[in-house]
Simulated assay, not measured.
Amino acid sequence: MNMVIEGLNGIGWRKRRNPASESCQCGSWKLHWIKHSKRDWPSKCSNADCHKKPTLGADVRWLSGSRPQIIPLCDSCSKQTDRFNLREGTVTVLTHQYECS
């Protein structure tokens, strides 16, 4: 299930610490996000405080315990270890999709 972030749902996200063991048959998390969101790659990073262009799909988790999600982030935000808020309207995509091949 994909989510569109609106309002308070965007508060309290964090990049996952060790997702390197997980991969996807789509080729990259960016391609995974594009395929499963069925949207064009956005022009701004998903971090609400950033206005740079996103370059990769990042593996994140909402601090309330959501399942791992992929979002578009820029290089600098993808290295961030602190919590951050998602831009309103951000589309998240679950890391595990049955249609990946």
Rank of each mutant, 00 (worst) to 15 (best):
P42Y: 06
P42F: 03
P42W: 05
S43K: 15
S43T: 14
S43I: 14
K44Q: 13
K44P: 00
K44G: 00
K44V: 05
K44S: 08
K44M: 11
C45R: 04
C45I: 07
C45G: 05
C45Y: 01
S46A: 15
S46N: 06
S46W: 00
S46P: 08
N47G: 05
N47L: 00
N47Q: 04
A48M: 05
A48Q: 02
D49Q: 07
D49V: 03
D49R: 07
C50F: 09
C50T: 08
C50M: 09
C50E: 06
H51E: 12
H51A: 06
H51V: 11
H51C: 09
H51L: 09
K52A: 10
K52C: 13
K52W: 03
K52T: 13
K53G: 01
K53M: 10
P54M: 11
P54E: 09
P54T: 06
T55W: 00
T55V: 15
T55M: 08
T55I: 15
L56F: 00
L56P: 00
G57K: 05
G57N: 08
G57E: 02
G57T: 11
G57D: 01
D59G: 03
D59P: 02
D59Q: 11
D59T: 12
D59S: 14
V60P: 03
V60Q: 03
R61F: 01
R61I: 13
R61H: 11
W62D: 03
W62A: 04
W62F: 02
W62Q: 11
L63I: 07
L63A: 10
L63G: 13
S64W: 15
S64K: 07
S64N: 10
S64C: 12
S64F: 14
S64Y: 15
G65I: 13
G65S: 11
G65V: 13
G65Q: 12
G65N: 10
S66Y: 03
S66F: 06
R67E: 14
R67P: 01
R67Y: 04
R67M: 06
R67Q: 09
R67K: 13
R67D: 12
P68S: 13
P68M: 10
P68L: 09
P68F: 02
P68W: 09
Q69C: 02
Q69W: 02
Q69E: 10
Q69P: 00
Q69A: 02
I70S: 00
I70Y: 00
I70Q: 01
I70G: 03
I70C: 07
I71P: 03
I71E: 01
I71G: 03
I71R: 02
I71F: 04
P72N: 04
P72I: 05
P72S: 12
P72W: 05
L73C: 04
L73N: 01
L73Q: 02
C74G: 05
C74M: 08
C74D: 04
C74P: 07
C74L: 07
C74E: 02
C74F: 06
D75I: 14
D75M: 13
D75H: 14
D75R: 15
D75Y: 15
D75F: 14
D75K: 15
S76T: 15
S76D: 14
S76H: 15
S76K: 15
S76L: 12
